[in-house]
């Protein structure tokens, strides 16, 4: 197995609803979607965002788009106009999720990263 960052497997966009941030994670190739489903669980995302997300993480599957949607509750310092954060709307949480590393088999890792 080899470690690979999600940025090599997916793209993403994030936004807000009150104090909840949403991150939509979209597979770059259809064959990557099952890998995301298996590895990028709500529990792993919660762990990844420790120090940022102070509530539950919910995950929804959108197979027709090859995408997963995550709701990160209590993640925006109160959200909206209350929040003092630079990123009060969680707009950059998309790429924050793409920093996550998951394990994939060596062959796939080589295919994606070369070498």
């Amino acid at each position: 197995m080899a470690k690979i960052k999600l940025i090599h497997l997916a793209h993403a966009r994030s936004g807000d609803k009150g104090d909840t941030a949403n991150v939509g994670l979209i597979a770059l190739e259809p064959s990557f979607y099952p890998i995301l489903v298996e590895n990028v669980t709500a529990a792993r995302v919660k762990e990844h965002f420790r120090g940022i997300c102070f509530g539950d993480v919910e995950r929804f599957e959108i197979p027709n788009l090859g995408a997963l949607n995550f709701l990160l509750h209590k993640s925006l310092d109160g959200g909206g106009t209350i929040s003092l954060k630079t990123d009060a709307q969680g707009k950059t949480y998309s790429s924050a999720l793409l920093r996550m590393e998951i394990d994939v088999d060596d062959r796939l890792s080589k295919e994606i990263l070369g070498g």
Binding site: A12, G15, F60, N69
Partner: peptide, 12 residues
């Protein structure tokens, strides 16, 4: 797709 998932809650 990026716009479809923007500010998404439960997709259903």
């Amino acid at each position: 797709k990026e716009q479809l998932v923007y500010e998404m809650g439960d997709p259903r």
